[in-house]
Design a binder for these strands. Structure first.
Length: 632
RNA sequence: GCCCCCGUAGCUCAGCCGGAUAGAGCAAGCGACUUCUAAUCGCUAGGCCGCAGGUUCGAGUCCUGCCGGGGGCGCCA
């Protein structure tokens, strides 16, 4: 193109087409020339020579026919090119889709991140699936991936330690170990709501009243409740301080409690068959965080926000109000935020905001530990990229954390890269409103179990399979369903989910496409199994002609590696998932119309295409953390 | 108040760095199983791409404003 145009700066784009629709396989556009000259002149002066160049002898073994219409120069490729592509897919086999675009990169992916003493809710589920698949994608692109499960085993623990002792006599006997922890959390939340509700207590529902009555038998009025709550908070703060200082009793109890929760989480990870390399509690990073903060105070980067500094900023705000740059309302809000931070250790950020890294009472907060985590992770893993897969509600926290890391010298302007991959939450299918963690809780494990039972029952209709095969197939279909349900749409949007009855959810899962892709891969494999021999090599194939459908299917298959790269580059698994659904659709259609094994003879080129389709679907599913069961 | 996300078929969503007649799936209707397993396939129907301007040869896509929906803004995590 450059030679024909006589210019070195021409750029072009190539789009795959549907042969049955356009009679060609790819469209070529020289975008630079198009923009430079406009459509009219481009069509008149350039399109003809572009078509002529493409039809020239140099490309004769690739190009079968060139046509043009409007700004598009359409090229029909020779059938041999497609089948050669199929052969290369077969040669690469399990490696098809892998690439080296991220060679030399070491990426930390921080995902799942459950809270000890709280219930795993749907947000953790999304984080787990998205993070895991992103890790797979980065690996497929050649990166070394360190998967880290950052367990919140510290924040808010004062309440748990105190509650465990304070409410001991009132716990119902039926609660298990982890159940106790959840109960304490529920008590705390209930108290917060009750106190926030004030005198009326109108916002407190019946279940919450029951909790209040059980655990605070002496407090019946709003004032008494408030007093009881304040005593609870005070005692909890003391507990936390002792824990941080390493008090033997508190540490021992804390350790036991963490174990209870981890054991509970394990059933969730087992159900999803997820194994995260590094399970590290945030407590691990406490000392490193304090070290960084102390050092930063020492060299003046971080400092205690004093009353005087706040006064100066307030004065500036007052000036702005006087100059009518801001309203008094904005000023009051800002002042309130400023005053709240007096006494805390803060890191000033380039955008003028502050990042609080230590409370005024000297205790750590999660920011302290997150900073420590960055320091230790850099020392241990020397990562080029750190990616956090955490819900969108923490966007502000992470943008500040990343800025603070650079200000504190824990990272340079470009190394490592920090990314917060966020996602939407689950919403009520009827109301469109966000489900609270308490509502979405219920069910992650139960939902998956119900999905397994559903697919188990359907499989059983099929016939000759052993019990174990049935279990495995159902497990994979269930996992595939939930993964696809979560990952086929853009992550930033919310996922609506029906409440109560699980049946509609399961039905949605089945329709969501996971089983469709699994089943497609299984059909392809069934053909190959029946054939029973290695598929023929390209060199054994005589003269052949591809159908439009075959050309389309093959071009979709050959696009797969690019989709893997794109999904990794955009940190967006849905790009991969949708492409798999697309391939599965084209393949199923092909499967229905083009028999491979017929009247005892095998169609060689179709066998090759079937093998390539099976490989691309299996490899793609594997990236999505779904394995194809041997039988279905 | 500030910030973020969303608005495309009855429903759930795709739609690339702006490019051919805006696509799938579900739901609805019709048709196809002694077959490489029908968890499938084929066909039909269904659209002021929220509204109004602007940029452009060309806008669902980019810009501005408006309307509507959801969310986030702790010395919690």
């Amino acid at each position: 193109m450059r030679r024909h145009s006589g210019r070195a700066d021409v750029t072009w784009e190539v789009d795959f087409l549907d042969r049955s629709k356009f009679g060609a396989d790819v469209a070529v556009r020289l975008t630079g020339l198009l923009q430079e000259y406009g459509a009219k002149e481009y069509i008149g002066s350039h399109v003809p020579w572009i078509a002529e160049a493409l039809a020239g002898p140099e490309l004769a073994d690739l190009v079968a026919e060139v046509t043009y219409k409007g700004i598009y120069v359409n090229v029909r490729l020779v059938d041999h090119w497609f089948l050669a592509g199929v052969q290369s897919v077969i040669d690469l086999a399990e490696r098809f889709g892998q690439n080296d675009t991220r060679c030399g990169r070491a990426q930390i992916v921080d995902y799942s991140s459950p809270n000890v003493a709280k219930v795993l809710h749907a947000g953790h589920f999304r984080s787990t699936m998205i993070g895991h698949v992103l890790g797979n994608l980065y690996e497929a692109c050649g990166a070394i991936v360190y998967r880290v499960n950052h367990i919140n085993d510290f924040g808010g623990f004062g309440f748990i330690l105190e509650g465990f002792r304070r409410f001991g006599p009132y716990f119902p006997g039926s609660l298990g170990d982890n159940g106790l922890l959840l109960e304490i959390y529920a008590i705390r939340r209930t108290m917060e709501r009750a106190v926030a509700a004030g005198e009326s207590l109108a916002a407190v529902d019946e279940g919450e009243r029951e909790i209040l009555a059980r655990y605070f038998p002496g407090a019946s009025t709003a004032d008494e409740l408030r007093a009881a709550y304040e005593k609870f908070v005070g005692a909890a703060d003391e507990r936390f301080q002792k824990l941080e200082e390493g008090d033997a009793d508190e540490v021992a109890l804390w350790r036991r409690m963490v174990e209870w929760s981890l054991a509970d989480f394990q059933s969730f990870y087992q159900a999803l068959d997820i194994d995260i390399d590094f399970v590290i509690g945030e407590s691990f990073y406490l000392d490193a965080g304090n070290f960084v903060v102390d050092e930063a105070i020492g060299n003046g980067i971080a400092f205690e926000l004093t009353k005087q500094q706040v006064c100066e900023e307030v004065a500036e705000l007052d000036r702005a109000v006087a100059a009518e740059e801001i309203t008094a309302q904005v000023r009051d809000k800002s002042v309130a935020l400023l005053e709240k931070d007096i006494g805390a250790i803060v890191v000033p950020l380039p955008d003028g905001e502050r990042f609080v890294v230590r409370r005024s009472d000297g205790r750590s907060i999660y920011a302290t530990r997150d900073i420590g985590a960055i320091k230790l992770r850099r020392e241990i893993f020397d990562p080029t990229d750190i990616t956090y897969v955490v819900g969108q509600e923490q966007r502000v926290h992470f943008t500040r954390l990343f800025q603070a890391a650079r200000v504190l010298g824990l990272a340079t302007a470009t190394m490592p890269t920090f990314k917060h991959i966020y996602f939407g939450f689950y919403v009520d299918a009827d109301t469109g409103r966000k489900l609270s963690s308490r509502e979405s809780v219920a069910g992650v494990t139960e939902l998956l179990a119900a999905a397994v039972r559903h697919f188990r029952a359907r499989s059983a209709e099929g016939g000759a399979m052993t019990e174990q095969e049935l279990d495995e197939a159902a497990q994979q279909l269930a996992v595939g369903s939930v993964v696809f349900n979560d990952l086929k749409r853009d992550m930033k949007g919310s996922v609506s989910i029906a409440r109560g009855d699980l049946a509609p959810i399961i039905t949605d899962f089945e329709k969501s496409g996971g089983p469709y892709v699994v089943y497609s891969a299984c059909r392809a494999r069934a053909i190959l199994r029946k054939y029973g021999k290695p598929v023929p090599h390209l060199s054994e194939i005589g003269p052949f002609e591809l159908s439009d459908q075959e050309a389309l299917l093959i071009s979709r298959i050959l696009e797969f590696p690019d989709k893997v790269i794109k999904a990794a580059d955009e940190d967006n698994p849905s790009i991969l998932v949708r492409h798999l659904l697309d391939i599965a659709g084209v393949y199923n259609s092909y499967y229905a119309s083009a028999p491979v094994l017929e009247r005892g003879t095998a169609n060689k080129s179709r066998l090759m295409i079937t093998r390539a389709a099976q490989l691309v679907l299996t490899n793609g599913l594997s990236l999505c953390h779904v394995e194809c069961p041997p039988k279905i």
